[in-house]
């Protein structure tokens, strides 16, 4: 009896959800179409595609040369994580470097571009709620990101399979999917950020520049900054004791983790490398007596769960800010 009543409630709520999101599907469809047919997207996809194929090629040849030298576990994952001497980038590092650029490109002119083209007031005078536009743009962006990342990931996996001839285990497949999903979330964070900038700044060039500046700062300078701050708080000399060194390292890591870029790279290198058992400094006495071996997928996931939550939160906070500022903004310039 109770259960039936609950179902009734859910039904009503669902129709309300549909009512409140009138036009959302239309906006999503149009935006996805725009992205996929745009020149900007083609250029970017080509760039990422070529670099990732390059990374795959290097990885495959490196694996081949080192194949005879010892036992190789998780060959399939190595396709994504191995970098060579001639090119110090793996698939993983390429995505973590270029991924934000995808997000920024998809979103930097989301709202101020509509303003520039003078389409904003025309679209919003149609019978849709104002948030349908921004929700639609964000969802469309996430869909496109998912298409790129999953397409690319499975393409590299397929080609790797052909090159190495070693099929992935189920565990490896899960790891790959988790990695790709995490990448989509991370890039969506950048998408949300660039949409926020597109609302805060009236010029598309300003919002693009702001996005790129923040990307460079977080991707390159932030870890340097974290190290400097940590050195300032806990200076380490040759004579420093273990506590001091440990405190320094921990502080540095703590500060670095404020940056979603660091959070992401730490999480993906853990999920794609089953041998990683802990993040951060491990003392010899802690490692003493541990058995050599890889973690299972579930354990690795558990290890990066705070990162996953942190990235989702960062994405939602950015989108929330964008949402609020868009809803409060005057339509008129």
């Amino acid at each position: 009896m109770d259960k039936a009543a609950n179902w009734q409630d859910i039904k009503i709520d669902f129709s309300r959800v549909v009512e409140a999101n009138k036009g959302l599907a239309t906006v999503v469809k149009k935006e996805v179409g725009d992205h996929l047919s745009g020149k900007r997207f083609s250029i970017l996809a080509l760039l990422v595609f070529v670099t990732c194929l390059g990374a795959l090629y290097i990885a495959a040849s490196t694996i081949r040369t080192s194949a005879g030298q010892g036992e190789l576990d998780f060959v399939f994952l190595l396709l994504f994580t191995t970098s060579g001497a001639s090119m110090p980038f793996s698939f993983l590092s390429f995505i973590s470097l270029l991924g934000p650029l995808i997000g920024l490109t998809l979103g930097f002119d989301a709202i101020n571009g509509e303003r520039d083209r003078r389409t904003l007031s025309r679209i919003l005078s149609q019978p849709i709620y104002r948030d349908a536009l921004i929700n639609g743009k964000f969802i469309a962006g996430v869909i496109v990101i998912a298409i790129i990342i999953f397409g690319l990931g499975f393409l590299v996996a397929g080609l790797g399979l052909l090159i190495t001839g070693i099929p992935p285990t189920l565990d490896e497949l899960f790891r790959l999917i988790a990695y790709l999903t995490l990448s989509v979330i991370y890039i969506s964070f950048w998408l949300a950020l660039s949409i926020l900038f597109s609302i805060l700044f009236r010029q598309t060039s300003t919002s693009a520049l702001a996005g790129v500046a923040l990307w460079l700062f977080l991707a390159v300078f932030f870890t340097l900054l974290a190290g400097m701050v940590a050195d300032g708080i806990y200076p380490v000399q040759d004579t420093s004791d273990a506590d001091q060194v440990l405190a320094n390292t921990r502080t540095e890591q703590l500060i670095s983790r404020v940056s979603p870029a660091y959070l992401y790279s730490e999480a993906v290198s853990t999920i794609m490398n089953p041998e990683v058992r802990a993040m951060g400094p491990v003392l010899l006495e802690q490692a003493y007596g541990t058995l050599k071996g890889a973690l299972s997928f579930g354990q690795s996931l558990l290890l990066i769960w705070p990162h996953v939550v942190g990235l989702i939160a960062a994405m939602l906070i950015c989108f929330g800010l964008a949402y609020i500022s868009f809803m409060r903004q005057e339509i008129r310039a």
Binding site: R117, R118, P127, I128, Y129
Partner: peptide, 21 residues
């Protein structure tokens, strides 16, 4: 009730814009 109003009213903004592409 913005939706009721907006579905009833056609609005031609000044200097109307369209998606060029």
């Amino acid at each position: 009730n913005p939706l009721q109003v907006k579905s009833m009213v056609g609005y031609l903004p000044d200097n109307v814009g369209f998606y060029d592409e």
